[in-house]
């Protein structure tokens, strides 16, 4: 019975959390800028509206246009079921670290292809930047996750992220560093502020929006939903790291874990909007420097894992 309840809860999180988190980011940002801002659920309304609209397709488009959308959304939903981004998500048998990373890469592969598809320079430069950023970010993500996996001696992430009783307090720095590395990397991966500005459409250095430029109607709705889902999954994953650090210091009950793992996603959303309010987008050539912070955090986490792992 409780498993069914947990599945239902996971499923509703998967459906509503993406829009809500995007809504929180936008609303907080608006309030910080003394604006009223759009309603909290605007993203969901937009998605529903787009699903009902008809679409325009470039005359140069090939079958990649559709293949990208369906592969993107089906992989992302699968990933949402595989990745342990919520502490209460029932475990599955395939949540292997390297599988997850390469499923993310598969999404990116087709996204880049589809933005090269219509032959527009806008989309293509977005694609080129996305490829560059992913080259830099992928090692950071994989190393951060390897660090925590190494300390658990398994690459099965649902075992790595299982909240076990009496974890030693000495593990807290590892989880903190890994969480910081993941969070900084996911800011880049999700094309958020210091690297890319998600709210502009006329910037010459935009990444995510440029890649979506030629999509419209239901196609765009699905892609937008998928990227919002990717945001909560990645935030959830780094949030879980922070929760584990908290669990090392102050063990909490697993019932509290449900509440905490949702609220930490919201907290990270608020942090994102704070970052986006106080900082400006970096010049494109300086983006690698920001990625380096994430990579450094991951490397430090790995170092901690290696030092504690070898001595124990």
């Amino acid at each position: 019975m409780s498993t069914i309840l947990l599945w239902l809860l996971t499923f509703s999180c998967l459906l509503f959390l993406p829009s809500l988190t995007i809504g929180i980011i936008r609303k907080t940002k608006a309030r910080l800028q003394n604006r009223v801002g759009a309603p909290l659920w605007q993203h969901l309304f937009d998605t529903i509206k787009l699903l009902r609209k008809s679409e325009t397709v470039s005359e140069n488009s090939s079958w990649i246009l559709r293949v990208n959308t369906v592969i993107n959304i089906s992989i992302m939903i699968t990933l949402a079921f595989l990745t342990p981004w919520l502490s209460f998500k029932p475990a599955t048998s395939a949540d292997d670290l390297f599988l997850l990373i390469y499923l993310f890469a598969a999404i990116r592969f087709f996204a880049i292809l589809s933005s090269l598809d219509p032959g527009s320079a806008f989309g293509a430069f977005g694609a080129s930047r996305e490829a560059t950023l992913s080259v830099l970010v992928e090692p950071a993500i994989i190393l951060a996750l390897s660090a925590v996996a190494l300390s658990a001696h398994t690459s099965n992430l649902s075992l790595v992220f299982a909240l076990t009783a009496n974890t030693p307090i000495s593990q807290a720095p590892l989880w903190l560093l890994a969480g910081a590395g993941l969070f900084l990397s996911s800011l880049v991966e999700l094309s958020r502020m210091p690297v890319d500005d998600p709210t502009t459409h006329l910037e010459l250095t935009m990444v995510h929006e440029a890649m979506m430029l030629e999509n419209s109607g239901p196609n765009l709705a699905l892609l937008e939903f998928s990227s919002a889902l990717r945001l909560v999954v990645l935030y959830g994953l780094s949030g879980q790291c922070f929760l584990h650090a908290l669990h090392c210091i102050w063990p909490f009950a697993s019932a509290a874990g449900i509440l905490l793992s949702i609220s930490i996603i919201f907290a990270l959303a608020v942090v994102t909007s704070l970052i986006e309010t106080v900082s400006v987008r970096l010049k494109w050539t300086r983006a690698p420097e920001f990625v380096a912070y994430g990579l450094t955090m991951s490397l430090l986490a790995l170092l901690v894992a290696l030092v504690t792992g070898v001595s124990s």
């Binding site: 008809s54 470039s58 005359e59 030629e214 109607g217």
Partner: peptide, 10 residues
């Protein structure tokens, strides 16, 4: 409704 085919945005 079938999609409308148009030029790439320029």
């Amino acid at each position: 409704t079938p999609p409308r085919v148009c030029r790439t945005w320029e």
